[in-house]
Design a protein around this nucleic acid. Structure first.
Length: 420
DNA sequence: TCTGGGGTCCTAGGACCC
DNA sequence: TCTGGGGTCCTAGGACCC
């Protein structure tokens, strides 16, 4: 048996921890730049506000309904997430942290009665210790656990915990779930399945293997098998090395000046390199893409991307920054209003098993390592951005602003004082 | 006026090999 | 008239997840 623990409306719930008066009140959290809606309270969901939709479309509704709006406060969410995960890990050895607000645990060799007791206890514990409401779903495969979780969320009588104990229960619940409520079925497959008369998860589970394989690839077939109770996925508990690292941001305003693009690209490259060092990896390739506003119909569009190999595997920020800026030089075109840049690193490998390089001495590498260590340490101790590279610019006008960000209550002493 | 950020996996098709 | 068979590797694009 697997259980999946999912924090309800996670970012909204995090804000409510420090502003309890917002319980039962409509709340949304927006993306960077206050662009999209990325978390909604139940009250807002009931108003028909769609996940990921642009915030400006709901300006009037939010005004009228007195919706509380927040800019994202990711340091806070990350910290509360780690506290939730710590509480869960106390209960189970085998745990996979699947995302910031979700974890799987392995309940093999437990009786269903015991599992149910443990889940109810865990839900209470997380609520009491951290103040975050969660839903828990249990099933014989990870996909069925996720389905049970959906059932628990949709139906109040479960009080947040739903176990699929046998095939009869499984079929009964699957009938109530739409195909795209199922893990692995998105909008594209929903449209396809609906066009073939398949609307609920039960019907999907009945679809013939060959047909599923042909039209939904092997991943779709695994989903179907898991719905029937045949195990195809298992927990990945140990740390999995990342295959790519991305740093990208939409600008606070359209950018036309080349120097400003250099500043933003340098900043994203520096951040990507920093993440790379956190992972203990080195990169072989740097990619950069830049684009104008996709949604604007009044201006001319431009998008371009280019990947270049580094002369040697590295995690040294100056090397990665200058590579990204070199690419920018090649793909930049005058006369466009740029809205976004994205730096990504590829062909990552572990720093420990780095290869020797003919034109890149051991001494040079050690010196670079010491420099980066110092930079990272300063930024960790005194806050990120304390020390930056010159090409990142002094007073960036292209950065977005998050006006409605709440204090980082749990990770910054000075911001804790802002709690009134 | 205003539309996020960060990832993974799979497939088709082309290039190439013998 | 009539043009093989079997394989690998790479990439772009599309699907999905949160």
């Amino acid at each position: 048996m697997y259980a999946v623990i999912d924090c309800n409306n996670f970012y909204v719930s995090c804000e409510r921890v420090f502003q309890p008066h917002l319980k039962k009140r409509p709340v949304v959290v927006l993306s960077n730049n206050d662009g999209c809606i990325i978390s909604r309270s139940d009250e807002v969901k009931r108003m028909g506000v769609k996940m990921g939709s642009p915030a400006f479309e709901y300006h009037d509704l939010f005004d009228k309904e007195n919706v509380h709006i927040f800019s994202p406060n990711f340091p806070l969410y990350a910290d509360l997430s780690s506290r939730v995960m710590r509480t869960i890990s106390a209960l189970s050895q085998r745990l996979e942290v699947y995302s910031i607000d979700e974890a799987f645990i392995d309940f093999s060799n437990f009786s269903t009665t015991l599992i149910e007791k443990q889940c109810i206890l865990l839900k209470k514990l997380i609520q009491k210790n951290i103040g975050i409401p969660v839903s828990i779903g249990v099933g014989t495969t990870m996909t069925l656990a996720k389905a049970a979780n959906e059932v628990a969320k949709k139906n109040e009588r479960f009080a947040g915990v739903c176990l699929i104990k046998n095939n009869t229960e499984r079929d009964k619940y699957l009938v109530t779930l739409k195909v795209d409520d199922i893990w692995g079925i998105g909008a594209g497959l929903r449209a396809f399945l609906n066009a073939h008369g398949i609307y609920n998860a039960y019907k999907l589970a009945q679809a013939p293997d060959l047909w599923v394989k042909q039209y939904m690839t092997i991943s779709g077939l695994k989903t179907v098998w898991e719905l029937r109770g045949r195990k195809c996925h298992d927990l990945t508990s140990e740390h999995v090395a990342k295959k790519s690292i991305i740093s990208s941001r939409t600008f606070g305003r359209p950018v036309t000046i080349y120097r400003e693009l250099v500043e933003s690209v340098s900043t994203y490259a520096a951040r990507a390199a920093e993440k790379l060092r956190e992972e203990g990896e080195v990169a072989s390739f740097v990619s950069l893409s830049i684009r104008t506003n996709l949604h604007s119909s009044s201006q001319k569009h431009y998008y371009n991307t280019l990947t270049e190999s580094l002369s040697h595997e590295t995690d040294y920020s100056p090397t990665i920054i200058s590579s990204a800026v070199q690419i920018l030089k090649k793909i930049y075109r005058r006369g466009y209003q740029y809205k976004k840049a994205c730096v990504s690193l590829h062909e990552l490998s572990s720093k420990d098993i780095q290869q020797q390089h003919l034109f890149y001495s051991h001494e040079k590498r050690q010196k670079e390592d010491r420099t980066m260590k110092a930079v990272d340490l300063i930024n960790f101790e005194f806050g990120s951005g304390t020390i930056e590279f010159a090409s990142q610019g002094k007073r960036p006008g292209w950065k977005g602003n998050a006006v409605k960000r709440t204090p980082r209550y749990t990770t910054k002493w000075n911001e804790l004082l802002e709690v009134s």
